[in-house]
Design a protein around this nucleic acid. Structure first.
Ligand SMILES: [Mn+2]
Ligand SMILES: [Mn+2]
Ligand SMILES: [Mn+2]
Ligand SMILES: [Mn+2]
Lengths: 220, 220
DNA sequence: TTTAATTTTTAAGCGTGCTTAAATCTATGG
DNA sequence: CCATAGATTTAAGCACGCTTAAAAATTAAA
């Protein structure tokens, strides 16, 4: 394919499929931050090229080929993130944007060599699993957004959505990283925000932010 | 700038300036393998953006800004080549095409970190010098194309042009690498080709190829 | 079920980077 | 110095990926 935009569309589609494995052009447009009209346009091209199943006014699904392509893009993206963070020491809130470009500029051979050099990591620096060269993704711990836990639950942060502008910079500032232990102190009714104990600090985060931080319950 | 084509134009211009520091649109078109018309078009844009000095029907020169930009692109390109070859073990005849893409997808910060990781290499795997972050290029040994030496000269290969399609694959096949010692056995009049001793083999290479292999004379 | 709101598509337009064909300029050599 | 070959530019056109505005289809609400 060799096309930056198309590749980003496929990844965005894959990452935002609903429970039925579909996505509305609508959603896609807002995730990609472009107009609905542009999405319609591109969907016709992606359909023509066999990457999506698409009919006017209907939701979109990926074909097998489209899904494989999307997973390969995630593989490239996440391996680059590991490299940038682990090998080059670039901070975890800067690597996503960088990988967003590199993912389109690397052959499979390069990626396979990179994977070997990195010793076959299974997750990226934000906690997302890295597909293998056949598109297979290791089963991961079942995590839930921290909005779904209860008051007084002790949690350990397992994953953070890397796809939301400035989110990672923000949560870094309030002291959250992967593996951090936090406590749900309170859940406010009127705006659905959540009060967390992080270290010895109480911090109020919005529902929106909380829904992009994924964790696991721990004993204490 | 953030533009693949424009970046490749600047690099191509820089690499092919004549003794007067200029280049004809003509030459540029053939180096980039596109039409003269396309070059005219782009020169207007590069001029508008302050990267080249250009007037209709005249040769082109780089502005200071254009030259700096071009050298930064070479820096990116060559550091990636070192990484690909040295760190990932990718063969030296495959790294150029790969770097040709990566060079457009990496921030200065990434490149600076990469340079540090690679321990500040001074030449790339084809023998070209790597500009530092200020665009400064270390003086290199004065090399000449092997067409310029004489019969019975013993040479050591210092640099190979990485910009000629398939050249490196070819010379690899006949046993030439950086540091290889070769002997000029004969120079044929009628087609200007050159007969080399490489190891214990006699090999005839065309003038065209010979003019892209650079070497230094050695005692024996 | 009829209307209103929302989503989606169509239409027209724009910048980029390329093409080929035609026009025009420049350099050269007789 | 003038004809002509070669280099360069102009013109028209195309695919891409986006935009805004308008039209059409779908969905939700009353
Ligand atoms: Mn990411
Ligand atoms: Mn991307
Ligand atoms: Mn190269
Ligand atoms: Mn390039």
């Amino acid at each position: 394919m060799s096309n930056i935009s198309q590749e980003d569309y496929l990844t965005a589609i894959y990452r935002n499929l609903d429970e039925a494995g579909e996505i509305k052009p609508n959603i896609l447009a807002s995730k990609l931050d472009i107009s609905n009209a542009a999405v319609t346009d591109m969907l016709r091209k992606l359909s023509r090229d066999g990457f999506v199943d698409y009919q006017k006014y209907k939701s979109v699904r990926l074909t097998n080929e489209g899904e494989l392509y999307a997973k390969n893009m995630l593989r490239r993206h996440r391996l680059w993130e590991v490299f940038l963070n682990q090998t080059l020491g670039m901070p975890w809130d800067k690597i996503h944007d960088e990988a967003e470009k590199l993912e389109h500029s690397s052959s499979d051979e390069l990626i396979n060599r990179l994977e070997k050099f990195l010793k076959y990591p299974s997750i990226d620096p934000h906690g997302y699993p890295i597909p293998d060269k056949n598109g297979k993704i290791k089963k991961t711990k079942s995590v839930k957004a921290i909005t779904e836990f209860n008051i007084n639950d002790h949690l350990i942060v397992i994953r953070v959505n890397d796809d939301v502008k400035n989110l990672i910079s923000y949560i870094t500032k309030i002291g959250i990283t992967l593996g951090k232990k936090i406590l749900i102190k309170d859940k406010l009714e009127y705006d659905s925000s959540i009060i967390l104990m992080i270290g010895n600090k109480e911090i109020n985060i919005s529902y929106k932010i909380a829904s992009n931080i994924f964790a696991e319950k721990i004993k204490r």
